[in-house]
């Protein structure tokens, strides 16, 4: 188990790479529909705004960031993610937790 300090740093890095992914999809969205870069921002569901194509774009953008920054490739949209009771893509924060979980499983 990582200590609190290391975990905070890792979470910050993960949030930053999610924000870069958000930048990437915001570039394709009208100003009024752009996502704020905050952990509590909803991505999917009623208060979200990402349709299935938007979600594909976001997943790919974030996976590219993970590969560049952590030098591992993750499949964020695998069966595990889709079968979880709480949708990991519901908010920026839940997605960050899910990525942290996957990275930890890779020993990072």
């Amino acid at each position: 188990m990582k200590d609190q300090g290391e975990r905070m740093t890792a979470n910050d890095r993960i949030l930053k790479l999610i924000f870069k992914g958000i930048d990437s999809i915001n570039a394709m969205r009208p100003k009024e529909a752009r996502f704020a870069k905050q952990p509590d921002v909803a991505l999917m569901g009623e208060s979200g705004g990402l349709d299935s194509l938007g979600m594909v774009n976001l997943i790919v953008a974030i996976e590219q960031q993970i590969e560049e920054q952590f030098h591992v490739s993750l499949d964020l949209a695998d069966d595990e993610a889709m079968s979880m009771r709480d949708n990991p893509f519901a908010t920026v924060g839940s997605l960050a937790n899910y990525i942290a979980h996957l990275l930890e499983r890779k020993g990072l």
Partner: peptide, 22 residues
């Protein structure tokens, strides 16, 4: 190297990375 991403193709039938579209 971001011009192509196989996952975009398999999941969305999108042959190019989004920066190409920009």
């Amino acid at each position: 190297n971001r011009a192509f991403n196989p996952k975009l193709w398999y999941m969305g039938k999108i042959p190019f990375g989004n920066e190409v579209f920009l």
